[in-house]
Amino acid sequence: MKVDGLKNEMSCWVVTDGSAGMEIQCIGLAEALTLDFSVKRIKTAKPWRWLPPALWHAPLSRLKPEGDQLKAPWPSVLITCGRQAIPLSMAIKKASGQKTFTIHIQTPNTNPTNFDVVIVPEHDKLRGPNVLVTEGALGRITLELLESEGKKLSSSIKSLPKPIVTVLVGGSNKCYDLTPDVMTKLADDLSSLHDQSGCSFLVTTSRRTGHENEAILTEALANLPHQLWTGKGDNPYFGFLNLASAIIVTADSVNMVCEASSMGKPVYVFELPGGNRKFRHFHQRMRNLGYTRPFIGKLEQWSSTPLLETRKIAGQVQKILSDHT
């Protein structure tokens, strides 16, 4: 599958298992590096997908036909994320005669020296001479993109009363539960917030939100000034971020919290049942740095330096890449 990137003389593959949270980080870095990139979504066969990278035999032959195949000519740069892509990155490095520059995002379950660069969030503890550390997750957001997407939607929200509150709703995952009871609590809190402040809402859900939760949210918003996107038509996500006076985001997604924090606007985190050590560390650090506060049903005003980690990390990668070539 081809995704158009910006023109650069070096070719690039983005390789993941297709998970949105992984793919978006790789694409964001490729765009920030202005690479001409192709996105490849792989499907790995059993039992190999369960094994550590060192135990894979001939990794490039373990790809299922319903996913993308990885064959020469090899790219100048390979950006991967997720454990399924790790043995493939190592195999491509070897097959290219060590010429492909390999970048892995997130802590790999192998020695980081198997890659040219490893990029991890601060709440992961991996450190090393070729390890770059970010505040949270990488993404596609730039101030230019946000402004452009906001302009596309500005006429459609003219009738909405101020302040405008953007609400980013995720869903249940391995760490958190977004149950109907929890969604009802969020919906009630939004209604109360409107009663207090007269605000309107720009709301997006995700694939993990679920139909029952979407129905609860839709019903609650029916009598409130709002726009709601649940997956049909063009995604207004970046425009909603740009047009917000404040942002509320559910706690289940590091990506969404980081993207919300890219604006330098107040970001409120709506807690969900669950969590783990890494999530708790991440959320506490974002609060300590002044990017977020817990959502307790009211609006406050504060500002922060926009969190634009992808641009910063791309500059560091570019320097290493220049030295490599």
Rank of each mutant, 00 (worst) to 15 (best):
G210R: 07
V3Q: 15
K94F: 12
Q227N: 04
E135Y: 06
N235Q: 04
T34K: 15
W302E: 11
G5Q: 07
I164H: 05
C12R: 10
E147D: 11
L143P: 10
Y237Q: 08
K151F: 02
G297D: 11
E66M: 13
K232W: 00
R41V: 10
E259P: 03
V120I: 11
F270S: 04
L63G: 10
Q284A: 07
L138R: 02
P266C: 14
R62L: 14
D188I: 08
D36P: 04
I92V: 11
T218W: 01
P53A: 11
I119E: 01
T205W: 02
M183A: 01
I79W: 00
T100I: 04
E212T: 09
A72C: 01
S245L: 12
S154C: 05
A220V: 04
G128H: 08
V267P: 13
L299P: 07
F238Y: 12
T110D: 06
A54I: 08
L132S: 00
R140Q: 09
H211F: 00
F295Y: 12
C258W: 07
P87Y: 04
L126T: 01
A244Q: 13
I247P: 15
R49P: 08
P108K: 04
G82W: 02
R49D: 08
A58V: 14
I216P: 00
W302H: 01
N109D: 14
S197Q: 07
N255T: 12
M256K: 06
Q301N: 11
R49L: 11
L217D: 00
L243Y: 02
L178K: 00
N242H: 06
A215P: 03
H226P: 07
A20I: 13
G67Y: 01
P59C: 14
P306N: 10
E66S: 14
T44H: 07
P273Q: 02
Q316G: 12
L78I: 13
S89Y: 11
N109P: 09
M22S: 09
G150P: 05
G21N: 09
I164P: 06
E135A: 12
R62V: 13
E144Q: 15
T204K: 05
L243R: 14
D177A: 14
L217A: 00
L221N: 05
N235V: 00
